[in-house]
Design a protein around this nucleic acid. Structure first.
Lengths: 253, 253
DNA sequence: TCTTGATCCTCACGCGGGGTGAGGATCTAC
DNA sequence: GTAGATCCTCACCCCGCGTGAGGATCAAGA
């Protein structure tokens, strides 16, 4: 019955762990990093925690549940003159971090849901096609900034100026159109494919004339375009290769 | 100009890294864990990546952007008979994970926003009071399951049965009321405090009579309650101590 | 052919927040 | 006295690489 040793304000590490819902190892860790060390030690080296330590642990836990890293918790609890203002700032900063994180998670969720709907909606019997689709979407997401993609999703139809921006938008539309062809497995005999290939050629040359890309990258583009135009419908390997070349041309300005 | 060495289908690690937007170290890492090793090595040991490797890297990157861990990517790409069904399952599983994660993040965001509004709304001049508030909220969140708290937030007024459930709800209400007293710094002379202390006593004894708690825990409760009743308004230390005792009694059934 | 600068290689430690032992000392209850 | 619970200190593990250190090799110009 004297097992409730906290009566005298002395807590062993196990008692404290159980009482606060943390593990003994965690308390060891807090000790190691200097976040919470026992106020006293017995002659044999066992940690004895005081009431003050218990309170500190509760604060640590509370701040931890707000998602703060231990280092920041240490700082926040370390400043003895921690006024309300700094706490407010801390919380607002944390809220900002969390919002940004949530936004990214939301974007990934959207992407996955889009993929799932594509799987369900279109005829996609071969996983190779699925992976090709996935790769193209990923490339598309990487090529444009989120703002550009938002614009793109919102008002894709209204383009007409011959700026590079407009070319990019058209290029994205072409990629999406090509994506659908890949999904549907359109044969090369289809006239829509010929139209698409022509537009692809045009926009491709525009792209590389408008920006300063290397001659080598341009020749690669030409090679690839020619091969693609000849060999429709595409194999996923060709798609992946095209994407790799595009990306390479982009990252070697 | 022959710097575009990928022409012959051979890629050095640096070229591949630049082309795909990853670092050389990441490719080393993928090699270490067996996720992507170069198809060939030169006589001196330099990695030479093939077209196939490039395609595999693109798939790795694509799946990575969906938030999948590298180990799972390896499995997903490793099964040569990866049909659409398993990919669907993979994506759905990942979507579930992300949803759960997002839910937790949302909960933390709500908590922080609640805290910020409390800071702005109430008179909370001393950071000690803020920490005490924070601790009490945290304890409250830990003591009840999310479902219970939802019920609590929704229909707190309608209680009447003498079940343990009802006692818990009343206890939570009392905690919140006490919280407000702490925030407002109500003096002990205020009659509402006397009422509150009486209710607190009653519900406390109910709690410990209804469940099988140890006599020691009960005595600690009694001690603490008495001290609190005598010493109002509370110091944050007393609050923290009370919370510690409660938690201890809970985790030692 | 030599040199030079870029690129490549292999260790190996670091991060955060602890988990999971190993091996031994110490406490507590009977 | 003894047994079982609890305590101590190492020390390595997870993930997805970053960041060097120290040395070998490559590609291109003189």
């Amino acid at each position: 019955m004297t097992e409730t040793s906290g009566a005298a304000g002395q807590w062993s590490i196990g008692e404290l762990a159980k009482a606060c819902g943390v593990t003994v190892r965690a308390l060891h860790h807090y000790d190691e990093i200097g976040l919470l060390s026992a106020g006293r030690r017995t002659a044999s080296g066992h940690r004895r925690y005081t009431e003050e330590d218990v309170r500190r642990l509760y604060r640590i836990r509370s701040l931890q549940m707000l998602g703060l890293p231990l280092a920041e918790i240490g700082v926040a609890l370390g400043t003895p003159a921690d006024d309300i203002g700094s706490l407010r700032t801390l919380l607002e900063r944390q809220l900002l971090h969390l919002s940004q994180h949530a936004e990214q998670v939301q974007a990934v969720q959207d992407r996955i849901r889009d993929l799932l709907s594509r799987i369900d909606g279109a005829t996609m019997p071969v996983p190779e096609q699925f992976m090709a689709t996935l790769e193209m979407i990923t490339m598309l997401e990487n090529y444009f900034t989120p703002e550009q993609r938002q614009e793109l999703a919102g008002r894709r139809a209204e383009l007409g100026s011959d700026s590079i921006e407009a070319a990019k938008v058209r290029w994205a539309a072409l990629v999406e159109e090509g994506l659908k062809h890949v999904e549907n497995g359109t044969r090369v005999s289809d006239p829509s494919i010929r139209e698409w290939a022509t537009a692809w050629d045009e926009i491709g040359s525009m792209f590389h004339a408008g920006e300063e890309t290397k001659a080598a990258a341009r020749s690669m583009w030409q090679d690839n375009k020619t091969a693609l135009s000849a060999d429709l419908p595409w194999t996923p390997e060709q798609l992946a290769g095209l994407m790799a070349y595009l990306q390479k041309a982009r990252t070697q300005p």
